[in-house]
């Protein structure tokens, strides 16, 4: 599996008044590759446009979005014609929050729907087995989403995203709002999937937390890719890092020799 993002830009068209259109660019000229077997962490502060890239990959952007450049999966451009064959089957999305689960449908049923959408029909036993793979008790199938804890909901969404055995997994902030133990659990699962041959695009705002599980780290700032580093170089004072922004970000973490530049009491 190979994902190619080439000179990808994204903008939104808004009406300014009645007739004048204004275009707001949110992603600028992104270029990177992701191969099977690796975890690429896409790190950026909120508002950097990380989730938009995920939505663009799955073709679920709002109608007023305009994109340029190309997204290719194993060389095939991802567009409205090809995406129906890829979504769910070759690429799975782990969404950001519990609001991505239908509040009125039982969890087991939602997992079965996800399977169906990947052309799989799961028996009750297979469903239970899927759940236990992600450390979810069998009873979860009968629960509604609001009855799950944050960690359980995230694991359920992970189970839904991977039920169709996709080669590419895009996880959009899979650890936000989770305690360290649950977050580690999710990240370890994603790492395991990469080790089994999948490509994992890990979208996160937490650099320090994701570094131990990633192979490479891409840093996004205001819609631009400002650095591509190996995860290994995020160590010590970050002297091995190639980009200034990456180094500043790494050093900004309290445990990594944080030194504020310039006087604080300006």
């Amino acid at each position: 599996m190979r994902l190619d993002v080439e000179r990808f830009s994204l903008s939104f068209v808004r009406y300014d008044g009645v007739l004048r259109q204004r275009s707001i660019q949110v992603l600028h000229d992104l270029t990177f590759q992701l191969e099977g077997g690796e975890v690429l962490a896409l790190v950026g502060v909120s508002g950097a446009g990380k989730s938009l890239l995920a939505h663009a990959l799955f073709g679920i952007l709002p109608p007023n979005a305009r994109s340029a450049g190309s997204l290719r999966f194993d060389g095939v451009p991802l567009d409205d014609a090809t995406l129906p064959n890829f979504r769910g089957r070759h690429m799975g999305l782990v969404p950001q929050s519990i609001s991505h689960l239908d509040p009125l449908a039982r969890c087991g049923r939602q997992l079965a729907w996800a399977a169906e959408r990947s052309n799989l029909r799961l028996t009750k036993a297979q469903l239970a087995e899927r759940l236990s793979t992600f450390n979810l008790p069998r009873t979860v199938a009968h629960n509604f989403p609001h009855q799950l804890s944050g960690g359980m909901a995230r694991r359920l969404m992970l189970a839904m995203a991977t039920v169709g055995q996709p080669q590419l997994i895009v996880a959009d902030e899979p650890t936000s709002g989770l305690d360290p133990k649950n977050a580690e659990n999710i990240l370890r699962t994603l790492r395991g999937m990469a080790d089994a041959g999948c490509g994992v695009l890990l979208i996160t705002h937490d650099l320090v937390q994701s570094v131990p599980y990633a192979d490479r780290v891409a840093i996004l700032n205001s819609g631009r890719l400002v650095g591509m580093e190996t995860a290994r170089s995020f160590s010590g004072a970050g002297d091995e890092l190639t980009g200034d922004y990456a180094r500043a970000l790494w050093r900004a973490a309290p445990q990594n020799a944080f030194t504020p530049e310039g006087p604080i009491d300006a």
């Binding site: 609001s99 689960l101 449908a105």
Partner: peptide
Amino acid sequence: SDFALYARAQGASRREIAIRHGARN
């Protein structure tokens, strides 16, 4: 909603979303 968006990302058609998620809600 977010869950309709997620259903689309899973490969559901608009029709399926309308019937399964829309009618239910």
